[in-house]
C-alpha cells in the first residue's frame, strides 16, 4: 500500500518572509539551504559582450554607466539584489574574458552546519 504523502505545503522562509509553495516537502529539506554568493567583476578585463547579463538565471546583473580603461561598459549587480546570487557559476563559466567570478559567502554555510548538528 502506498499512502499519499501530503500534497502542496506552503512554506514560510525565515529570511525575508517570502512564501514558497512546494508540491511535497523533501525529507532532507532542513539540511539544504540555497547558498549565497558574492559577484566579483574584474573591470579591466571586461569587453562588454553582455553574456553574463543575458544568461544569469536570477537576472541580477545589468549594464552600468561606468566605463573601464578601454571604454567598455562594465556590468554591475542590481541594487537590492546583492544577496540573490545562488552560486550556479554560469557567469564564471561563460565569460570569455576571465573577468567575473563568484565567491560563496562563508558565514551562511557555518550557520547551516550548526543547524545540522542540532
Amino acid at each position: 500500500m502506498i499512502i499519499p504523502v501530503s500534497i502542496s505545503i506552503v512554506m514560510a522562509l525565515p529570511e525575508g518572509g517570502v512564501e514558497k509553495k512546494y508540491w511535497r516537502k523533501p525529507l532532507d529539506f532542513h539540511k539544504h539551504k540555497v547558498p549565497i554568493g558574492k559577484v566579483i567583476i574584474i573591470a579591466e578585463r571586461c569587453k562588454a559582450c553582455n553574456y553574463c547579463i543575458e544568461f544569469c538565471p536570477k537576472d541580477i546583473l545589468v549594464e552600468s554607466e561606468e566605463r573601464n580603461k578601454k571604454g567598455y561598459k562594465v556590468p554591475m549587480v542590481v541594487e537590492g539584489k546583492e544577496k540573490e546570487c545562488i552560486v550556479c557559476r554560469h557567469c564564471e563559466d561563460i565569460c570569455p574574458e576571465f573577468g567575473i567570478y563568484i565567491e560563496e559567502i562563508e558565514e551562511e554555510i557555518e550557520e547551516e552546519e550548526e543547524d545540522d548538528e542540532t
Binding site: E44, R45, K47, A48, C49, Y51, K70, Y72, D93, I94, C95, P96, E97, F98, G99
Partner: peptide, 20 residues
Amino acid sequence: LPHIWCPGCGIGIVLKAYIK
C-alpha cells in the same frame, strides 16, 4: 590579460572549459 580576442569570441570560453 586582457587577451587579444574580440568581444564575444568563444575561444576564451573553450580555454576556461579546458582548464577546468
